[in-house]
Amino acid sequence: MTNATVFYGYDLGGPGDWRLTPGTRISRLMNNEFEEWLTEREEAAGRTLDDLGITEGQYHETRPSPRWTLTPKKSLYYVDAREPLDLSAVMTRRDQAWDDALTEALRLLGVTPTQPAPKWLLTLDHGY
């Protein structure tokens, strides 16, 4: 079965294909090390992504090399691919607060994505 996630934010990539500017420590992290690194960054900052209304997402999590996303919680939609997808939610204007929260989350993490700005993205899970 194929399911999908539609979200507004950043695709950070993953081990072997991090989509971040070169030279950041994260570009050398492997699989579960990302979550440990994320916790360290949050503790050092004294706040969490959750405090900002942001969630980190993982897709292709059953593969050896998962990929990571950053998205405002209110912009995350899970889709059952057996049903038609109503795109009206993603066709509406985004909330400026989402951009502001994502900018703050990137500062908290100390990373710069290669993706120039947040945008609507779709990931598929083929039930690996």
Rank of each mutant, 00 (worst) to 15 (best):
R41Y: 08
E43I: 14
A45V: 12
R47L: 14
R47N: 09
R47T: 12
L49F: 10
D50F: 13
D50Q: 15
L52T: 14
G53E: 14
G53W: 15
T55Y: 02
T55M: 05
T55P: 00
E56K: 13
G57K: 03
G57I: 05
G57A: 01
Y59T: 06
Y59C: 03
Y59P: 03
Y59S: 08
H60M: 11
H60K: 14
E61W: 03
E61S: 11
T62V: 15
R63N: 07
P66N: 07
P66S: 06
R67A: 06
W68G: 00
L70K: 03
L70V: 11
L70N: 06
L70S: 04
P72K: 01
P72R: 02
P72S: 10
K74A: 13
K74C: 04
K74Q: 13
K74G: 05
S75G: 09
S75Q: 06
L76C: 04
Y78K: 12
Y78C: 00
V79Q: 00
D80L: 08
A81L: 02
A81W: 01
A81Y: 01
R82C: 04
R82P: 04
R82F: 01
E83M: 10
L87S: 12
S88I: 10
A89H: 09
A89I: 03
T92W: 12
R93S: 12
R93G: 03
R93M: 12
R93I: 08
R94L: 13
D95G: 10
D95F: 14
Q96D: 15
Q96E: 15
Q96M: 12
A97D: 13
W98I: 03
D99V: 09
D100N: 15
D100P: 11
D100Q: 15
A101W: 04
A101R: 02
A101F: 05
L102W: 10
T103I: 03
E104L: 11
E104D: 15
E104V: 13
E104M: 11
A105W: 02
A105T: 10
L106D: 05
R107G: 09
L108Y: 02
L108P: 00
L108D: 04
L108C: 06
L109Q: 05
G110S: 10
V111M: 07
V111A: 07
T112I: 14
T112A: 11
T112C: 05
T112S: 11
Q115W: 07
P116I: 00
P116A: 00
P118W: 02
K119T: 09
K119F: 01
K119E: 12
K119G: 06
K119H: 06
W120K: 01
L121E: 11
L121D: 05
D125E: 11
D125W: 01
D125V: 01
H126M: 04
